[in-house]
């Protein structure tokens, strides 16, 4: 699959953030990702460097990644 192959999801997906951002950055990440249509909750686990995104309606994975990229966070595979 290409990195931009369409990939919608429901349920929970955990993203591992490279160079985990600090807690101050965590709040805007949760706010912005949490505001994506379909996303029902978004929790940033600072200690583990993980972003836990739960969707109750389909969300495009690329939209989450683009938003994180915009906020200056890289994810690792």
């Amino acid at each position: 699959m290409m990195h931009n192959t369409p990939r919608t999801f429901v349920g929970t997906v955990v993203f591992r953030l490279a160079d985990p951002p600090s807690a101050e950055v965590g709040e805007p990440i949760e706010r912005h990702v949490g505001a994506l249509p379909g996303v029902s909750s978004c929790d940033f686990d600072e200690a583990a460097g993980l972003l836990v995104v739960t969707a109750d309606a389909p969300v495009e994975r690329a939209d989450v990644l683009a938003l994180l990229d915009h906020l200056g966070c890289r994810t690792t595979r």
């Binding site: 349920g11 929970t12 997906v13 955990v14 591992r16 836990v52």
Partner: peptide, 14 residues
């Protein structure tokens, strides 16, 4: 191991 953990964590939410 890392991927195992990410998926187990996601599954535990549900």
């Amino acid at each position: 191991h890392l991927d195992t953990e990410l998926l187990a964590r996601a599954a535990l939410v549900d």
